[in-house]
Simulated scan of single mutants.
Amino acid sequence: MPETPQGLLARLDALGIEHRTVTHAPVFTVEESKALRPDLPGGHSKNLFLKPQKAPGPFLLAVLEEDRRVSVNALARALGVPRVTFGSAGELVATLGVEPGSVTPFGLVNAAPGSVRAVFDRHLVQDFEWVNFHPLTNAMTTAIRPKDLLRFLRGLGHEPELVDPPAGPALP
């Protein structure tokens, strides 16, 4: 069974990781989530669940600053993956334990180490005191300090990579 939002938050508590969680109506896009900004200060993201198109390899979870414009395939090439496609809803549920619209780095709590390559926009984790992500459901948002998020993910067996995504016009 995948981890629940309550179980995830309890894990953070058990590790002494400071976090703040707000419950809200479900949001499915960055644009919808921008209406919540007055209650959620800090950095916000768009999260892309990708898979290599032809070569075998781990899925990619690209965690980008919400306003970053990037070509998905340019990002993949910069990461040494020739081409990628978006993972299917079934692959997303099976790998991260979340539904479409709830993609989050917290989903790595459900992923086997090595099954997902977690790639973070350097700007997002270095320039904000707090970053905000869905805690496995798009009806909640959890603020966490970037260093604590990275420490949590490392404790799960995932080694986050910090990257400078190539600029591009393709994905708003």
Rank of each mutant, 00 (worst) to 15 (best):
V72L: 14
G168C: 10
N73D: 14
E3H: 13
L150N: 04
H44E: 01
P52S: 08
G90A: 13
T95P: 08
T104Q: 09
A118V: 14
G80L: 05
D127Y: 01
L8W: 11
V81W: 08
L96A: 05
R77D: 00
R83N: 13
G90R: 12
T21E: 08
L64H: 02
V103Y: 01
H44N: 09
A35E: 10
A170H: 13
T85V: 15
L149P: 05
D39F: 12
F28I: 04
N138Q: 08
V98H: 09
L79A: 04
P5R: 10
L50V: 06
E31G: 05
P82G: 09
G157F: 09
A111N: 05
D67M: 11
L75K: 07
K34Y: 13
G57C: 10
L162K: 06
R11W: 12
V125A: 04
Q126I: 00
P135N: 03
G7R: 08
P38I: 05
E99V: 13
G87Q: 05
R37V: 03
H44Q: 12
Q126S: 14
P38W: 02
F49S: 03
V70D: 00
A118F: 03
R145V: 01
F49Q: 03
V27D: 00
L50P: 02
K46H: 04
N138A: 08
P135W: 07
L149N: 02
V22M: 12
H19S: 04
G97D: 06
F133G: 02
G7F: 06
G7A: 13
A94R: 14
V131K: 01
P5T: 11
L156G: 01
A76I: 06
S115A: 15
L12A: 11
